[in-house]
């Protein structure tokens, strides 16, 4: 088991598709990984659908760093939400922006991608399942579903992540798309199941993708 950031590059936005609730365990785990050893930059949770339950971020033995750096933002309308995500992604004070991206069109997505590039910020955009086919400028698009039980620790939540799309790349093998991850109780960080993906995948995300040829 290795802690992983799934190879998500900062300075880009990433779409997360799940139903019926926002996959906050995974997103909080990724934010927690980013927060470790990184100055005092903040994590923003934009939109009430993306507000985690604060004690759930810490856990009984956990590290309160993520909660201390969290800012919760509640924009009243869709336009205000897009503006808030944009401002947050551009700010040098933001490290990770977890945002509700419901109803985000291609133009908005492009705007957020440019904002993330400008601010070198990691943008995690949660989108509902029905928007799975929408166009998006995100660097990667992930589908989250409940994962298989871990026999060693049956109560531990697990998820299956399917990498639907990776900008400019295509998968070499079908296995490269899918991995099983869990969020450890003690650390609240995401770790990749070593059985499902090899160690290089654990460190850098699914690796066996090749540059996409045009035409």
């Amino acid at each position: 088991m290795d802690e992983a950031d799934l190879g998500l590059s900062p300075g880009a936005i990433h779409d997360w598709i799940a139903e019926p609730l926002t996959p906050l365990s995974i997103l909080a785990g990724l934010a927690g990984t980013a927060v470790r050893g990184c100055g005092s930059r903040r994590v923003l949770w934009i939109g009430r659908r993306c507000w985690p339950y604060p004690p759930g971020l810490v856990g009984p033995g956990g590290n309160a760093a993520l909660l201390e750096r969290s800012i919760f933002v509640d924009p009243p309308t869709r336009d205000e939400r897009l503006w808030a995500i944009d401002v947050a992604l551009r700010s040098p004070a933001a490290l990770v922006v977890v945002a509700d991206g419901t109803g985000l069109a291609m133009a908005g997505s492009r705007r957020l991608q440019l904002a993330a590039e400008a601010g070198r910020t990691l943008g995690l955009i949660a989108r509902p399942h029905r928007e799975r086919g929408e166009l998006s400028a995100a660097a990667t698009r992930w589908l989250v579903s409940p994962g298989p039980m871990d026999p060693a620790n049956p109560i531990l939540p697990t998820w299956t992540l399917e990498l639907l799309r990776r900008k400019g790349l295509r998968p070499i093998s079908e296995g490269a798309r899918v991995m099983t991850v869990r969020v450890e109780d003690a650390t609240r960080l995401v770790s990749v199941d070593a059985d499902a993906a090899d160690r290089s995948a654990a460190a850098t995300g699914p690796g066996r993708w090749a540059a996409q040829r045009s035409g």
Partner: peptide, 20 residues
Amino acid sequence: ELVDVLAGRLGKGAVRGAVL
């Protein structure tokens, strides 16, 4: 600065922190 910019447009109650 980021908090002020957000709160300036969305209102003070819309930007929060949490303590246990």
